[in-house]
Amino acid sequence: MLLGQAFFGLCAALAIIGALSTVIAKNPIRGAMGLLLMIVAIAGLFLALHAEFLAAIQLIVYAGAIVVLFLFVIMLLGPASQSPSDQRGQIVRSLGAALFAGSGLTGAYYVWHTAPAMKKLLDAPPNDFGTIDTIGRVLFSDGLVPFELSSGLLMVAIVGAVAVARGKHRTDDSHNGRGEILSSRGPDGEDAKDAKDDARTTKPTGEVTT
């Protein structure tokens, strides 16, 4: 039991350190590393709860994909990238921080006061809690509709991502007639400029609609 307590304490401390360094770090890469630390620590907390599957998925999805994506974007922006100066006022920011800290502290207060009085908050989970078998069974029986709906949502997101990524390419060859819909997005920023460049280069044919 002592080992379990120590493990929980370590993971919790690391998660808090990671979360704080994510927010505080000036250097974006260090912020991303703080996020990674927090994600790994939370995976450790899941492990302590016998949710091995959740811990593995946490590591695969968040640490293996999302943090890497963050790192990738930061590296593409270059080492000189700094966070843009925050335009919001001091009052709004301190209000947000106060709200966040207040809700956190209130929650901690209630847990502190009510937990000893209640013998146990929840029933002890069954032995196979958090295993792949159990989660699979729940996902495909009780939670089938939300599960399928969320897969539909992911599908939409994927299609949307492909559409967004392709949109910019299409404006380049808009003179072949297929890019008309995409290039008529209006005079906002780069797309309009691209289209203008296109119009300049393909003026003789005169097919471009901006």
């Binding site: 091995e52 599957f53 593995a56 590591l59 890497v68 790192l71 295993t131």
Partner: peptide, 18 residues
Amino acid sequence: PLNVGILYIFAMAGQGIV
């Protein structure tokens, strides 16, 4: 002998990128 077996391997393989 983890219950999640292969998923653990994917999880660890993903960390090498960082």
